[in-house]
Design a protein around this nucleic acid. Structure first.
Lengths: 204, 204
DNA sequence: GACTTTTGATTTCGAGTCGATACATTACGG
DNA sequence: CCGTAATGTATCGACTCGAAATCAAAAGTC
């Protein structure tokens, strides 16, 4: 039975491909005067909801340390792509926002090249890719410092109200606009239902 | 009708997953006193054939600069995981070899965790993943500094001799042992035939 | 309520590393 | 020989990590 054998070969092949893709995208991100960490921070800020735009949240998302995240943000601030101001509610916290210049820079994000490459794939192929990657990521998340994150739309804390018009976050009790619900949140909680409707292979 | 829409969503999802996986594996590789670059170099040296174990080849593989590769190797040498000696043939060159200690360290490579995660996937899923990743990687290779690389077994320069027993490299004219043919080589050339037989039915 | 302690978030600091550039050494071609 | 190309190394500024320090809020304590 060459089954297990083939399996192992595929696994190490995938691991290698991931590794190479990782380095490739690393090398791709030394453009426009930013480095990979700075691009990642910029992207994150462009997609994070208001509960998640802080240095420590960024650190959690990036799987890095708070010190590094702080300095990355400072570099971006010096370059004029973000602004930091002390949070009004809790003055320990810092709220980080993209500037107009920062938003503009996101339009030439080098990672868009990868996105385009994925778009060029047959649709089914892209979906398989997404699914496989999600599973792998889920499996190793425990062993690294990265947090879960996810969009409110698929979060188990989401509460619908009225005729599917108004929604709010069950944790904070605050209402969420449609755009808000598409943003990343630290407090994301996996929704069992989403898995089920995702595809018929959730039960273990 | 939301076809194009779904497609784009999948694409950006995949791009994000790749990004996060990249970050996760970055964080995973701060163990045993090495950093990600050093692990990558160690892995490469464990899989590179004799034409490819040099600082500049390492730089090409990693998509980094020669200077960085040189420093990474120096760090590994200081820690006793590799040895450097001047190449006898071309005295500009340096030949880098893993020490026994280096080989041992590879047994606890943190990236093996990802491999195991992939192994746990359904077989078909893993293959889809491999295929998709390979295509994406191929598409973006042009835009970054990374070289092609590949194993001699599937290189177009490979020449078979006798009854499928002895093989040799068409570029150097030197014979290749079975183990040699499984190693990575800088001079790898894509073989059209290999693509065609694509599926794992090469030697049915 | 005012003071101390604890908790939490962020920044600062030192050692080590990275990418870019400049430099040294060796090979190769006329 | 001399110039050019290829290979590695050294240096510099910027960055990363991890730990310790700073600062603000919350929780005890009197």
């Amino acid at each position: 039975m060459p089954d297990a054998h083939t399996e192992t070969r595929t696994a190490s092949e995938v691991a290698e491909l991931l590794d190479r893709l990782r380095r490739a995208s690393h090398a791709l991100q030394f453009v426009h005067g930013l480095n990979p960490a700075q691009w990642e921070a910029l992207r994150f800020l462009g997609r994070a909801n208001r509960y998640s735009r802080s240095p420590s949240t960024l650190a959690e998302y990036l799987g890095t340390t708070k010190g590094t995240a702080s300095q990355t943000l400072r570099a971006l601030e010096t370059k004029g792509y973000v602004e930091r101001c002390r949070d009004c509610a809790d003055r320990r916290g810092v709220s980080v926002e993209l500037t107009a210049k920062g938003r503009e820079l996101l339009l030439v994000d080098p990672m868009l090249g990868i996105e385009r490459a994925v778009e060029a794939l047959p649709r089914e192929c892209g979906e398989h890719l997404a699914k496989g990657l999600a599973v792998v990521l889920g499996k190793i998340r425990g062993s690294c410092r990265q947090g879960a994150f996810g969009v409110c739309e698929r979060c188990r804390h989401l509460v619908a109200e009225g005729v599917g018009q108004t929604t709010l976050c069950g944790l904070t009790g605050e209402p969420l606009s449609k755009e808000d619900a598409k943003l990343l949140c630290v407090n994301f909680g996996e929704c069992a239902e989403a898995r089920a409707t995702g595809s018929p292979a959730a039960a273990s």
